[in-house]
Computed example of a mutant assay.
Amino acid sequence: MNNRKEQLAAINRLLDIMDDLREKCPWDKKQTFESLRHLTIEETYELADAILDNDLPEVKKELGDLFLHIVFYAKLGSETNAFDIADVANSISDKLIDRHPHIYADVKVDNEEDVKRNWEQLKLKEGKNSVLEGVPKSLPALVKANRIQDKVGGVGFDWEEPHQVWEKVQEELTELNVEIKNGNQENIEKEFGDVLFSMINYARFIGVNPENALEKTNKKFINRFQFLEKAAKKEGKEIADMSLAEMDVFWNKSKKYFS
Rank of each mutant, 00 (worst) to 15 (best):
N2Q: 08
N3Y: 10
E6D: 07
L8C: 03
L8D: 05
I11R: 00
L14T: 05
L14K: 04
L15E: 02
D19F: 11
D20M: 11
L21P: 04
L21K: 12
R22M: 04
E23V: 09
F33W: 14
L36C: 08
R37Q: 11
T40M: 09
E43V: 11
Y45W: 15
D49K: 13
A50L: 05
L56A: 07
P57Y: 03
K60V: 10
K61G: 02
E62F: 09
G64K: 07
D65A: 04
F67C: 09
H69C: 10
I70H: 11
V71L: 09
K75A: 10
K75N: 06
G77M: 06
S78Q: 09
D98H: 06
R99E: 10
R99A: 05
H100Q: 08
H102R: 02
H102Q: 08
V107P: 00
D110M: 12
E112R: 11
E113L: 07
V115P: 02
W119Q: 07
K123C: 11
N129R: 11
S130Q: 05
E133Y: 05
E133I: 04
S138C: 06
P140R: 06
K151Q: 10
V152P: 01
V155N: 00
W159I: 08
E160M: 13
P162E: 08
H163G: 01
Q164W: 11
Q164F: 15
E167C: 12
K168L: 13
Q170V: 10
L176I: 04
N182P: 03
E186N: 08
E186S: 10
N187F: 15
I188N: 04
I188K: 04
K190T: 12
V195Q: 03
N209R: 06
L214W: 06
L214F: 11
F221T: 13
I239L: 12
I239C: 03
D241N: 08
M242A: 06
A245K: 13
A245C: 01
A245E: 12
D248S: 11
F250N: 00
W251Q: 00
K255E: 04
K255P: 02
